[in-house]
């Protein structure tokens, strides 16, 4: 590799007046990484993305792309390309002209830029729609065109702002696979902003969880899921029970919990608040007397062996090693 990181953020801060949207975050994204910025709305993830793109000025700190400081460069000279949340396809131009737009701006002759644009349209399987206007396309098709339009600039980093949020769930899973395939084949880094942890886990090599303008944890999805750094992360990525342990809070994966007669191991007892059938598993939610909430994800046949209903008293237990000690 001729560079250490595709993107490096050094104490990047964004202030709007007196409010701090992004608070001195630092992040290193190794070459060819699918990075997901994940967090609740208002956590600063979109501001971060827009600062990397150059659509938002950086209050303090530096952004480096492939080891080059691009903090003061205009968007087009950063080597980034952005895919907007609403796709922002130009409504007056055909798909072909949308994709060829950046080449036209650089003064590339018509025949050449159209040929090139056609290549990129076929890359996203949209060659047959070249003559259509954006308004004549479905959401998924618009997204493919937007992707082609971003990729034709041959970006070093592709930035995606909640790219899947406007799609229906079925299409979302399909586009997810496609994004991952493209990233792998192109060998560049993608930075993908999302508020869906499932989406982030499915896609990311590097999952960055943000909250209140800070990065709370960054790592491989598996690492984040298995060893969440804080109660916030454990709750936000879901599938965990956050409970008081002997020394501070612990996180216990709900799928490791079982219901049954109290044994010797760690456990909590409470009343069943809800039973949800979720297909392969059944989710049983408990509320303890001190108001703690906990849930167990039980394989359906385990649940059927000793079914419980709302209002029943039940004990939730887990193996000794399944608890993860949370910091703070």
């Amino acid at each position: 590799m001729d560079h250490r990181y595709d993107v490096e953020l050094v104490k990047v801060t964004k202030r709007y007046g007196t409010t701090v949207a992004v608070d001195a975050i630092s992040l290193r994204i190794p070459p060819s990484t699918y990075c997901c910025l994940l967090g609740p709305s208002g956590c600063g993830k979109t501001s971060t993305l827009r600062m990397i793109a150059g659509h938002e000025t950086i209050s303090e700190g530096d952004v480096l792309i492939r080891d080059v400081n691009v903090t003061d460069l205009p968007p087009a000279r950063r080597g980034t390309a952005m895919m907007f949340q609403s796709y922002a396809l130009f409504p007056h131009l055909t798909c072909l002209d949308n994709v060829a737009f950046s080449l036209k701006m650089r003064g590339v002759a018509k025949a050449e830029r159209h040929a090139k644009a056609r290549e990129y349209l076929s890359l996203v399987h949209m060659a047959d729609f070249a003559a259509r206007l954006p308004a004549q396309l479905s959401g998924g098709q618009q997204q493919r065109v937007a992707l082609a339009r971003a990729l034709i600039t041959r970006p070093r980093v592709l930035l995606l702002d909640e790219p899947l949020s406007a799609l229906d769930p079925f299409l979302r899973v399909k586009m997810r696979e496609e994004l991952k395939r493209l990233q792998r084949e192109l060998g560049i880094s993608f930075i993908h902003v999302t508020h869906g942890q499932e989406e982030a886990m499915a896609l990311a090599d590097l999952m960055v969880v943000m909250e209140a303008g800070h990065i709370r944890q960054a790592g491989a999805p598996r690492e984040v899921f298995e060893t969440p750094a804080s109660a916030f992360i454990a709750r936000f990525i879901g599938g965990h029970n956050v409970l008081p342990g002997q020394s501070g809070m612990i996180a216990v994966r709900a799928d490791r919990c079982r219901l049954g007669p109290p044994g010797d191991g760690p456990r909590v007892t409470g009343r069943v608040a809800a039973v949800e059938y979720q297909g392969p598993v059944v989710r049983v939610a408990l509320t303890t007397e001190d108001g703690l909430e906990a849930a167990a994800l039980l394989p359906d046949h385990d649940f059927d062996r000793a079914p419980v209903g709302p209002g029943d008293v039940a004990t939730l237990s887990w193996p000794e090693g399944a608890a993860h000690q949370l910091a703070g």
Binding site: T80, A88, F101, R149, T153
Partner: peptide, 13 residues
């Protein structure tokens, strides 16, 4: 939509 202009800038206009 403001994003149209941002997209144009992004694409080098």
């Amino acid at each position: 939509n403001r994003a149209w202009e941002e997209a144009a800038t992004d694409l080098g206009a």
